[in-house]
């Protein structure tokens, strides 16, 4: 029975992927991509990767989907692209096929059973004080990756901002939105954020011992903020705002400070002394939460506008 369900999900996934790539209509392709992210989340649940499933649904489906809807809307006003020539098509198909072949060869070349550090993690997780192995890996065993990830996100936001025309710097992020104050958007932007805040902080806090964590929580909090902004109930901050900049660097700075404390206490950057491992992990997560929330939310609105537009 489960085999049937799994096969159906896989066939749907491949079909959706083909729809996204081959679709002629940009908006339909984006809708397909969001459905693809949600379905992929379900597949991760089936694979027992609840943390990955939540991240995939929140970031792969939701946030990336929102980014792509914005891109599709901007593309609508752009000049239509000339159809691909036969030469381009041949090159694209050749590169794609070669890439697939190399990936397949790599996967098939893996020894059986695949090399795994899972038993090492399971053996040492008690020293970290957290019970969710994903959190232990992300913030204790491989915390360098997570630090670099946070920095990459910050760089991505700076890259988006650097696309703003000089004349509009330093302006507010995005176009001010207005909505009917008695309309349904304003209604849900008033009702949902309190619920979303509780769920977001719950997922953040539960992340130490259960599936969840700062990334999923930050996506929910960012979505709530965007909802308020898009209903015209709140404004995006100007890029020169001090609290905005402080929030953006809080995560990396906090992370690096904990890392430096590791040098002093254990002799290794990002080393966590076993006695304080859990408080330090929670400190990193608390520092990262505002940074991730701000970055994920501020990637979505269109670039800077200094002058208010009609």
């Amino acid at each position: 029975m489960t085999a049937w369900l799994d096969s159906a999900a896989l066939i749907l996934l491949i079909g959706l992927a083909a729809w996204v790539v081959l679709g002629r209509n940009t908006f339909a392709a984006v809708a397909g991509f969001i459905a693809y992210g949600m379905l992929l989340g379900l597949v991760w649940v089936e694979l027992q990767g609840i943390d990955v499933a939540m991240t995939e649904a929140a970031i792969g489906g939701g946030l990336t989907g929102a980014l792509m809807i914005g891109a599709a809307r901007r593309l609508k006003s752009a000049a239509p692209v000339a159809p691909a020539t036969a030469g381009t098509l041949v090159i694209a198909i050749g590169v794609g096929a070669a890439m697939a072949a190399i990936l397949a060869a790599c996967v098939l070349a893996l020894p059986n059973p695949a090399p795994s550090l899972a038993s090492l993690v399971a053996g040492n997780i008690a020293a970290t004080g957290v019970q969710n192995p994903i959190t232990a890996v992300l913030l204790a065993f491989r915390s360098m990756d997570t630090l670099l990830e946070a920095v990459v996100l910050l760089l991505a936001l700076i890259a988006v901002w650097s696309l703003a025309p000089d004349a509009e710097w330093p302006g507010r992020i995005g176009v001010p939105q207005t909505a009917n104050p008695n309309g349904i958007l304003a209604y849900i932007a008033r009702v949902l954020p309190p619920i979303g805040l509780v769920i977001g902080f719950y997922i953040f806090w539960a992340g130490a011992d259960q599936p969840g964590g700062k990334f999923q929580a930050a996506t929910i909090l960012a979505a709530m903020w965007l909802l308020i902004i898009s209903a015209g109930l709140g404004k995006t901050p100007p890029v020169s705002s001090r609290w905005l900049r402080a929030g953006l660097i809080a995560g990396p700075i906090g992370f690096i400070l904990v890392g430096a404390y590791g040098v002093a206490s254990t002799g290794a950057f990002l080393g966590l002394p076993a006695a304080y491992a859990k408080p330090l992990i929670v400190t990193i997560e608390i520092a990262l939460l505002p940074t991730l929330t701000l970055i994920l939310a501020l990637l979505i609105p269109p670039p800077l506008r200094k002058r208010a537009e009609a």
Partner: peptide
């Protein structure tokens, strides 16, 4: 309940 809330609101927005 959340799905009902978001579904109802989204339906209104799309209809609009």
């Amino acid at each position: 309940l959340l799905v009902m809330l978001s579904g109802a609101c989204l339906a209104q927005l799309v209809a609009h």
